[in-house]
């Protein structure tokens, strides 16, 4: 099967809506189809990567460990907007996984470089 460069753009916080969870499912399937996957977190999407999520009181599944497992699926390109981090008072150490911080101007190029953009 043809390989496309797929960019998954995550803009929503977790738990408030289902999009973060369903994006994870889609990343895993995309990886099973051997696609070239990059994840981008902008806007509230970067709250998905916050360490220490505990959903026990909500009876909702904590899906954040999945981000740590992505490496096993060869999903290693995880990008985060530097400006979005600063705007939300987050630092690299607040995040679950190792990410590459990009400026918003670099993100414009990143979107351009991919064949397909999945929006969440």
């Amino acid at each position: 099967m043809k390989i496309k460069k797929c960019l998954y753009v995550n803009r929503r916080a977790p738990y408030g809506t289902c999009y973060a969870l369903e994006a994870i499912d889609m990343v895993l399937i995309g990886s099973a189809f051997d696609q070239d996957i990059s994840l981008l977190f902008i806007d509230d999407g970067l709250f998905q990567l916050k360490k220490g999520q505990d959903t026990a009181d909500l009876e909702i599944k904590n899906h954040s460990p999945a981000y740590r497992a992505f490496e096993m699926y060869d999903v290693e390109k995880i990008y985060v907007s530097k400006e979005a981090m600063a705007a939300r008072g987050l630092k690299r150490g607040d995040l679950l996984v190792d990410v590459e911080l990009l400026s918003d101007s670099r993100i414009k190029e990143l979107m351009d470089e991919h064949d397909v953009i999945f929006s969440f």
């Binding site: 099967m1 043809k2 390989i3 797929c6 499912d25 889609m26 995309g30 189809f33 696609q35 397909v116």
Partner: peptide, 14 residues
């Protein structure tokens, strides 16, 4: 979900 990924690979536009 594989049907979505497969479709994206085969299609010109999503």
């Amino acid at each position: 979900l594989g049907q979505l990924i497969e479709g994206v690979v085969l299609a010109d536009r999503l």
